[in-house]
Nucleic acid binder design. Structure first.
Length: 207
DNA sequence: GTATCGATTAGC
DNA sequence: CTAATCGATACA
């Protein structure tokens, strides 16, 4: 997709990403999947955003030009990939939370150490592992290079045959944090929050 | 410096 | 519900 695709409000891009393919070409081969779950971050009212307290070495890509990948390392063992949106300096990004694998399934299985299709790229940490993304990909330009967003015929044309939908953890939390349901991307209607459940779990962990 | 927690995941 | 595991952040 061209730069202009990314240079729009984060929520607009978040919805537009649903149903499109995230593709990565690596030496081992190509892997790709339809984006079925995303989460938008950024803005003065989003304390959950990595950019909430200003730019740092880690989040600097978020503050850069749109159309770049913000990849960060978390929990000491996982990577997550974001799509930077909006205008330069705004620090808005969309976290890719789940993919429906469409290409390079065997490579994904090898990288993930999992066979089941539904578990290859369900969850942000699984997405990066399936595609082989690491901090080395932080800041890469999505409009040129081995990592990019593409339209996908099967989705553009409507309900063709699909593999079982994944990324069912649909949720929404206003004002800046949203989780959308998978395709058809036209609907993209938020259903219910899953963030709440995570918070409850974390609370008990602190005791 | 030292403590705490995380835009997570897998497994019991 | 927890271990795993390390970087970022908060606090003394």
């Amino acid at each position: 997709m061209p730069r202009a695709f990314y240079a729009r409000p984060v929520l607009v891009v978040a919805r537009a990403l649903l149903g499109r393919a995230l593709v990565h070409d690596a030496p081992e081969g190509r892997t790709a999947g339809l984006i079925v779950e995303v989460e938008a971050y950024g803005g003065e009212r989003d304390p959950a955003s990595h950019a909430f307290r200003g730019a740092t070495p880690r989040n600097r890509v978020m503050f850069g030009a749109p159309g770049h990948a913000y990849v960060y390392f978390t929990y000491g063992m996982h990577h997550c990939v974001n799509v930077v949106t909006g205008a330069k300096g705004q620090a808005r990004a969309v976290l890719v939370r789940a993919l429906e694998p469409i290409e390079g399934l065997e490579l994904m299985r090898r990288r993930r150490g999992v066979e089941v299709l539904e578990r290859l790229a369900r969850g942000p940490g699984c997405v990066t592992e399936a595609l082989g993304l690491t901090r080395a990909d932080d800041g890469v330009d999505l409009t040129r290079g081995p990592l990019w967003i593409a339209d996908h015929p099967a989705v553009r044309r409507g309900p063709v045959v699909r593999t079982p939908r994944i990324g069912i953890r649909v949720a929404a939390e206003r004002p800046w944090r949203l989780l959308f349901a998978g395709h058809p991307c036209a609907s993209g209607a938020p259903i219910r929050t899953a963030v709440t459940a995570r918070r409850v779990s974390n609370r008990s962990r602190r005791r």
